[in-house]
Design a protein around this nucleic acid. Structure first.
Length: 413
RNA sequence: CGGGGAUUGGCGCAGUUGGCUAGCGCGCCGCGUUUGGGACGCGGAGGUCGGAGGUUCGAGUCCUCUAUCCCCGACCA
């Protein structure tokens, strides 16, 4: 993209109405725009980050054999009454409205019920199972208090996967594979070192659910972490019994703040029974479908990464997540501009995302923006570029290298 | 939902015990000089002070109500 054609800009001033680092940085760098408390729009650069995160997740979900689909935001009341979750007393985050004819509807804050009903129309036999589906969807939750920028919004992007099995054993086997897939996701996002499998409340269905918690100074959860074993216990279930049950020792546990970047649930056959979603087994007996569900807060992940990956000059995105690989600047006369144009064309043809800063502003401003946006490689084309090569500098290093276009493409592509 | 703080040009802020045509920085527009880390000079445009009501000769400033934002707490399949 050419910055001269962009409608959006970075700002020198930090937003006065944000406290959270992720919101400050992302707004300042022009990645997101605050529509209202807990509701953020994703501007072109922010959307690219979101899409890159989605692509990492998508690849892992596909490897699990799940298929992507897209559910609806508008939800019928009947669906949720089947499991007793329509009531505002039970679920306090509902946004609800009415159709013109008076029919009550809700805005989806989760999709287990909807998915169960949907697959019940397609799954009738043991031959149809097991199988999983997932989606990336905007969830709407009427939080009493949203906070911390992208970390807790009323409208946010979530990946939710649902898996349907014939038995508890089949469910458990998939559950373990999914756990590993989740760890792969965080590793690919550069969060592997900071993200831990965490035992949390299992609600009415099981003793525990599993969360994935990224250690973060301003995270909103407190967990007790055994770093050596890479396991943690959420404060909500932190008792002596649980510590013993999990084979951990109190003295090995460190109390840290963290942000929940994933949560997976083992529903067993409970939902299938509640909603009468059944299949016929080999003997022709009707049995409830076993359900497990797997969530990742995609937009929250973007916030967590902004919290974690920054320095005093701005954001520092991991290369596979950055909105562009290269920030290209021409400094000099026509020769420099031509060299920059050439490189821009070469990189673009090779499918490398480039931010070409062709604005009529001074070099210092371009350097500052390259840093603020956190683009992994800054490339400068000067008057000697065609002869001596382009100057390329890693965002996290101080001294640039020089190389010709061919070598440069090889490095960044 | 309880408590605290905030709201003044596009953005970030100042504005004294109520007192004249409401300021500053950034940004924006024009001209010129500059051009490897957010340049500089000169000249401009732009706000009725979140909203409503009240007190007063006079309200950005005091009072009441209200909206919104931030933080702490509660809540968080």
């Amino acid at each position: 993209m050419r910055l001269s054609q962009s409608l959006f800009k970075t700002t020198k001033t930090i937003p006065g109405d944000e406290q959270a680092k992720n919101a400050k940085l992302l707004i300042q760098a022009g990645f997101v725009y605050k529509e209202m408390a807990g509701v953020y729009a994703y501007l072109p650069l922010g959307l690219r980050v979101l899409e890159n995160i989605k692509e990492v997740i998508r690849s892992e979900m596909n490897d699990l054999g799940a298929s992507e689909l897209l559910m609806t935001s508008l939800q019928p009341k009947d669906t949720w009454e089947m499991t007793g979750r329509w009531d505002d007393e039970t679920v306090d985050v509902w946004f609800k409205s009415k159709l013109k004819n008076g029919t009550e509807i809700g805005f989806g804050w989760s999709h287990e019920e909807a998915l169960m009903l949907l697959i019940s129309k397609f799954v009738h036999s043991y031959r149809d199972l097991p199988g999983g589906v997932y989606q990336f969807q905007t969830k709407l939750r009427n939080e009493l208090r949203s906070k911390s920028g992208l970390l807790r919004g009323r409208e946010f992007l979530m990946k939710d996967m649902y898996h349907f099995s014939r038995s508890q054993e089949e469910l458990d086997e998939f559950y373990e594979r999914a756990k590993q897939a989740y760890l792969n996701v965080y590793a690919k996002l550069g969060l592997g070192e900071n993200t831990f499998l965490t035992f949390a409340s299992g609600g009415a269905f099981t003793q525990f659910s599993h969360e994935f918690q990224t250690v973060l100074r301003d995270g909103e959860d407190t967990i007790y972490l055994d770093r050596a074993k890479k396991l943690a216990i959420n404060q909500e279930v932190y008792t002596d019994e649980v510590i013993a049950q999990l084979g951990l020792k109190k003295e090995d546990l460190e109390e840290v703040r963290a942000s929940e970047v994933g949560n997976i649930f083992n529903f067993g056959s409970v939902k299938g029974e509640q909603m009468s979603v059944q299949f016929s087994d080999e003997s022709g007996n009707r049995k409830p479908v076993f359900l497990s569900s797997y969530g990742i807060g995609v937009s929250r992940l973007m916030g967590v990464m902004a919290e974690l990956f920054n320095d005093n000059r701005g954001l520092v995105w991991p290369k596979q997540i950055a909105p562009a690989k290269v920030y290209l600047i021409a400094i000099g006369d026509e020769k420099a501009t031509n060299a920059a144009e050439d490189l821009y064309n070469i990189l673009t043809e090779r499918g490398v995302a480039v931010i070409y800063d062709d604005r009529d502003v001074r070099a210092g401003e371009k350097f500052a923006d390259a840093d603020l946006m956190g683009i992994p490689w800054r490339v400068v084309a000067n008057n000697q570029a065609q002869a001596d090569g382009y100057e390329i500098k890693d965002r996290i290093e101080n001294t640039p290298k020089h190389m010709n276009a061919q070598a440069l493409v090889k490095l960044v592509a």
